[in-house]
Simulated assay, not measured.
Amino acid sequence: MTLQGSLTHERYCDQLLAEAERFRSHLRDADLSATVPTCPDWTLADLVRHVGGAHRWAGTIVATRSTEFVSLKSHVRQGPEGTDREALDAWFAEGAERTVAALREAGPDAEVWTWAPVQRSGFWARRMTHETLMHRADAAATTGAAFEVPQDVAADCLEEWLQLCALPVLAERRADRAAEVFGPGRSIHFHATDTPPELNAEWFVDLTGDPLTHRRTHEKATVALRGPLTDVLRVAYRRLPADSDRVAVLGDRGLLDRWLNWATL
């Protein structure tokens, strides 16, 4: 498992900053005490602290070149309490900038701890970009803001999601649900309908064995999820229900539902 991304390290750094800025823009006129519908245990202020804390955690690992696990609670400040907009915004912006500065200084190949087989700083550039992107979807859903993503970034985010779902460390956590998903003749096709052919934004997920495998191709499957790439991505990450009129499900809807429950990151 290489967890290879399709963007350059510098592009991930640029995109992480862009996603952080868009995330902040969704919150500037919002009620930070509002509940996030896609993360109902959190308010918007909690969401800011979660994403900002993740930035600082990854940034600490990269900046210190730590090759061992770094405790989130011990090493990363969790952010201002309450809903002081200016304090939360300044804290969030500073953390994103510091993390990107650490990533740029390290480059993609510095040896650092990650929770994946790839022990390189480039893992964190890609992971934090997509972590921020998907939590921006949460912020947009809460505030009613438009959720737009460059298509190459959205495709890479979905590709990374499938790569992560195949990791043994994540599959082991869901072993009790594996029989509901894996078995003979089971497969899923994710098909973006609004992308140019050169992006190859189609994924065939083979669930006939364990672990899963996937390939970028158009291929008949047990169930297909079709729609604009951003909406397919949001369904995959359970930020949009599969019965939304923005997407179409063809085939065994039950398998898709069981997969989405199993694959939640």
Score class of each variant (00 low, 15 high):
L3F: 15
G5I: 03
L7H: 15
E10C: 07
Y12A: 06
D14C: 10
L16W: 02
L17D: 10
R22V: 11
S25D: 15
L27A: 08
R28C: 04
D31R: 12
D31I: 04
L32D: 10
A34P: 13
T35Y: 13
V36D: 00
P37C: 12
C39D: 11
L44H: 03
A45M: 07
V51Q: 04
V51D: 01
A54Q: 05
H55K: 09
H55W: 13
R56Q: 14
W57C: 06
T60H: 14
I61W: 01
R65P: 06
R65Q: 14
S66M: 11
F69W: 08
V70Q: 13
V70F: 09
L72C: 01
S74P: 00
T83W: 02
A87R: 14
D89E: 09
E97Q: 14
V100T: 09
R104C: 10
E105A: 15
G107K: 04
G107F: 07
T114M: 13
W115P: 08
A116I: 05
P117F: 11
S121G: 10
S121D: 06
S121A: 15
F123M: 11
A125I: 04
M134N: 02
H135R: 05
R136E: 08
A140R: 00
A140Y: 01
G144Y: 04
A146S: 08
E148M: 02
P150R: 03
P150G: 06
P150T: 03
Q151G: 02
Q151L: 11
A154W: 02
C157M: 07
L158Y: 01
L162Q: 10
Q163C: 08
A166Y: 09
L167F: 03
P168F: 03
E172Q: 12
R173E: 15
D176W: 03
R177P: 04
G183L: 05
G183I: 06
G185N: 04
T193I: 00
T193H: 08
P196G: 06
N200Y: 01
E202Q: 06
P211Y: 01
L212N: 01
T217F: 00
H218R: 13
E219M: 10
T222P: 05
L225R: 03
R226P: 03
R234Q: 15
Y237V: 09
R238N: 14
R239K: 14
R239D: 09
D245W: 08
V249D: 06
G251Y: 08
G254K: 11
A263Q: 04
T264E: 12
T264K: 12
L265M: 11
